[in-house]
Design a protein around this nucleic acid. Structure first.
Lengths: 128, 128
DNA sequence: CGGGATCCTCCCTGATACTG
DNA sequence: CAGTATCAGGGAGGATCCCG
């Protein structure tokens, strides 16, 4: 069991069966900060500290782990420039760019559904 | 602090700011079993035990919590038939039906991206 | 049958300190 | 600057028991 406690999500392992890959996708991009990382990198390449400042609330550790996971899955590239002090640049790949449309569709639904959702929630909560 | 340890995700609280509602959506439908529940209920109404058998791997507790969460957010309805023994039927709402298209788009991307993803992963892992 | 309540256990995560 | 290593806590989730 190599790689224990080194990745955020260890599952995925896309079961070749199952007609519904959604759980896997969610496991892939569900890591609390992945979306925000992808969104930020969508604006252009960023360095580690830039990401750390832009995302706000993320710890160094979690940022590292999420980036490693994204890199491992081919959604983000990591380029080291051997300068002094060292400089590391992250960027999204084509694979990651192609996911932006589906995610945008999901975001559209979210924006549209939030009111109904909040209403449902108030009703449910008021009935305790 | 009522409702502690009673919901799976307690956050959400859709911050009215932020132009990107994606983290909230993921918090909403990201609960490990929610997607599979919605997919299964998409086939038609189901009773608790039917869901428990269909989903496989889910514990009674988590199934209950996920269903409660979905119900609270207006994505699932819960109907109790006071028969003996009691019978409870779950079904998806219109709000939940409307999310199926975005999710399907995401699933399409997933199916298309899996090969690249696995390749990237093998390359990354082989470089240790 | 359909859960609620309780206990208990990992492991995820944050904080801190150290390194090339 | 860009991380890794280590420690500690807290919460998610499983197992179990019980009840209407």
């Amino acid at each position: 069991m190599a790689r224990r406690n080194t990745a955020v999500t260890d599952q995925v392992e896309p079961a070749p069966n199952d007609d519904c890959p959604l759980p896997e996708v969610l496991a892939l991009i569900g890591d609390k900060w992945c979306i925000q990382i992808l969104v930020e990198l969508g604006e252009g390449p960023r360095r580690f500290t830039q990401l750390e400042r832009a995302i706000e609330g993320v710890s160094r550790r979690m940022l590292t782990l999420n980036l490693r996971n994204l890199e491992r899955n081919g959604l983000v590239t990591r380029t080291v420039y051997p300068t002094a002090p060292p400089s590391v640049e992250y960027a999204i790949t084509r694979l990651a760019e192609q996911i932006r449309d589906p995610l945008e569709a999901l975001a559209d639904w979210a924006r549209h559904a939030v009111p109904d959702l909040l209403t449902a929630r108030r009703v449910y909560d008021s009935r305790t």
